[in-house]
């Protein structure tokens, strides 16, 4: 009971949330068999290309490997998902 009151006031996160967050992170790399450095490399390349055309929020850019249902519905396939918040679309291209 005390624990739930403490949770209510945001003092500690329920341990299952911690477990989920840690698992999700570790599984991304397990699944893809790629290092975080490799993802960082992809991320910086993507930023380089996109910023030529669009102003983006670089600090909020998220890129992760996950799994998704394949298009033919024949199973789960790995997918690279990028979440890129746009600040402004540049009207003039360089």
């Amino acid at each position: 009971m005390l624990q739930s009151i403490m949770n209510f006031f945001g003092k500690t996160k329920p341990s299952k949330e911690v477990a989920k967050d840690r698992l999700k992170l570790v599984l991304i790399h397990d699944r893809a068999n790629v290092s975080p450095q490799f993802l960082e490399m992809i991320k910086s390349e993507i930023i380089k290309v996109i910023t030529n055309y669009i102003e983006i929020d670089e600090s909020e850019l998220e890129i992760q490997l996950t799994r998704t249902q394949s298009e033919d519905g024949q199973g789960i396939v790995p997918a690279l998902i990028a979440n890129i918040p746009i600040k402004n679309v540049k009207t003039k291209t360089k």
Binding site: Q3, N7, K16, E17, A19, K20
Partner: peptide, 9 residues
Amino acid sequence: RGEMMSIED
């Protein structure tokens, strides 16, 4: 209590 992952999780 939120101290174990649920079936859904």
